[in-house]
């Protein structure tokens, strides 16, 4: 795996001057991913969403590689079409280079409106990496709930009211849905653990077929935390078991970080305005529910790892 020193000598795929909010994790994640991919020719696509909007305001693009934006729900289908054309043109001798393809989408574009397009592209076994930068809500349109939004989180369409304490439903487990497609590689990651993310990108791009990485990307205005805390929150998500970072390949699970003593979930929640209402007296049971759910999912993941590494 490339060291930070080696990576720092590569050309940046995403440069400065973009309009992402200060402290944005998704832009860091995309930078890290393009650096990891950067030693080979890379062509990318992106869903409509925060990252597309802030990085491509005409005539200014922050992308140093070819980028294709089509619409909101179809970056997987679009990049699958590019990959198909690449194979056709290569066969005809019109292209020599070995090109790798990466599609990006937010959780709205991936968990929700683009799920079908992604499912289809993986089922058709296009050799491409799909990265979901998951900030757990529709941040681009102003923090509306998505199926990636966790239980009880306040968003502008799942507000914490006097009767309903934030989003009433649990988050959908997209990574498991993708694993059910048996891709060539799948993983969860977060930019706070950048070496882990970089290694996963290298592995995904080397895999012979479709690959998927779900990257938890804290959002300063959407989650409501101090803007210098992005990487700390990203790490806390892993240390509290809220966002286990693991990978799946050839039928086997591997959990990449197993905290010896997991931190209580409240350490992660209390830094964020979207969970602030849970700390009010009378909501203790909700905190307990959330902690129990995190524990339960972690246990399931551990059992999957055991069962598949027998």
């Amino acid at each position: 795996m490339a060291s930070l020193k080696e990576l720092s000598k590569r050309t940046e795929g995403l440069v400065g001057g973009h309009r992402a909010c200060a402290g944005c994790a998704a832009s860091t994640a995309i930078r890290q991913i393009l650096l990891a991919a950067g030693d080979k020719p890379t062509v990318t696509g992106i869903c409509t969403g925060c990252m597309e909007v802030v990085t491509t305001i005409f005539p200014y693009t922050a992308w140093n590689v070819n980028l294709v934006h089509n619409a909101f729900e179809n970056s997987a289908a679009t990049v699958s079409g590019m990959e198909a054309a690449y194979r056709a043109l290569k066969r005809k001798g019109k292209i020599d280079a070995e090109i790798q393809f990466i599609a990006f989408g937010g959780d709205g574009g991936t968990y929700d409106i683009g799920l079908q397009s992604l499912s289809g592209a993986i089922e058709r076994r296009h050799k491409m990496l799909y990265v979901c930068y998951d900030n757990e809500a529709y941040m681009n349109t102003g923090y509306q709930r998505s199926s990636a939004t966790p239980y009880c989180a306040h968003t502008t369409t799942s507000p914490a009211g006097t009767k309903i304490p934030g989003k009433p439903q649990k988050r959908k487990d997209l990574t498991e849905i993708i694993i059910a497609h048996e891709p060539a590689y799948a993983a969860q990651a977060t930019p706070g653990y950048y070496m882990d993310l970089i290694r996963k990108v290298e592995k995904a791009l080397a895999a012979d077929g479709p690959s998927f990485i779900n990257v938890l990307s804290p959002c300063v205005p959407g989650w409501g935390y101090p803007l210098d805390q992005t990487m700390n929150i990203s790490k806390l998500a892993v240390e509290t078991l809220f966002w286990p970072i693991y990978e799946w390949q050839d039928g086997k699970y591997k959990i990449n970080i197993k905290p010896r003593e997991p931190k209580p979930l409240v350490d992660f929640l209390k830094l964020q305005a979207r969970f602030r209402h849970l700390l009010k007296p009378g909501n203790e049971h909700l905190l307990e529910e959330l902690q129990a759910e995190v524990n339960r999912r972690w246990e399931v993941l551990l059992r999957k790892e055991q069962a598949t590494n027998g």
Binding site: P41, V43, E52, V53, T56, I57, F58, P59, T61, W63, N64, V65, N66, L67, V68, H69, N70, M82, A85, Y86, L89, I95, A97, I99
Partner: peptide, 12 residues
Amino acid sequence: LDLENPKTFGPL
């Protein structure tokens, strides 16, 4: 797929 001159297609 032109790697010499990367472009951004479908900008905002």
